[in-house]
């Protein structure tokens, strides 16, 4: 991947993979990140892993947050991570949010997900985490 243009603002893709329509959390996070001064690209609903990875690359994002409440996270997250690797993208922070059982979190982290936010995480905690963890 080409060298990233250094920008002052953190660019974050908030993405909804899969078929479920639960976008309340994704929209709240998108707004909170925007209010915290980041540039937010919200993909909208029903995205395939391919579409999400394409958005991440096109938008030259520092981070991508995947919001999943359908129970399909163990299928969709590995697919997104693998596609990023295939496209030689290694410096984009990947986070996951949603109804993720605690037992699945170690496996997601082993894949390269840097953090998993489960119900009850505050918007400020998510903002702080992304500000601290992105590679700029």
């Amino acid at each position: 991947m080409a060298t990233r243009t250094r920008t002052a603002k953190i660019r974050v893709v908030v993405a909804k993979p899969g078929l479920d329509g639960h976008d309340r959390g994704a929209k709240i996070i998108a707004r909170a990140l925007r209010d915290a001064g980041m540039e937010v690209i919200y993909t909208g609903l029903h995205q395939t892993p391919e579409q999400i990875v394409e958005t991440v690359i096109q938008e030259d994002a520092h981070a991508v947050g995947l919001s999943i409440l359908s129970g399909a996270h163990m299928t969709l997250v590995p697919r997104v991570v693998a596609l990023l690797r295939e496209q030689d993208v290694h410096d984009v922070l990947v986070t996951v949010g949603g109804t993720i059982p605690a037992d699945d979190i170690p496996e997601l982290k082993a894949l390269g997900v840097s953090e998993v936010f489960t119900p009850g995480a505050t918007t400020q905690a998510i903002v702080d985490y992304i500000e601290g963890a992105v590679t700029r």
Partner: peptide
């Protein structure tokens, strides 16, 4: 299930994992 609600057959790539 979600694929049925969205009009996808179970063997559609869109239904993977759901």
């Amino acid at each position: 299930d979600m694929p049925s609600l969205m009009g996808h057959d179970s063997d559609s790539p869109r239904s993977l994992g759901e």
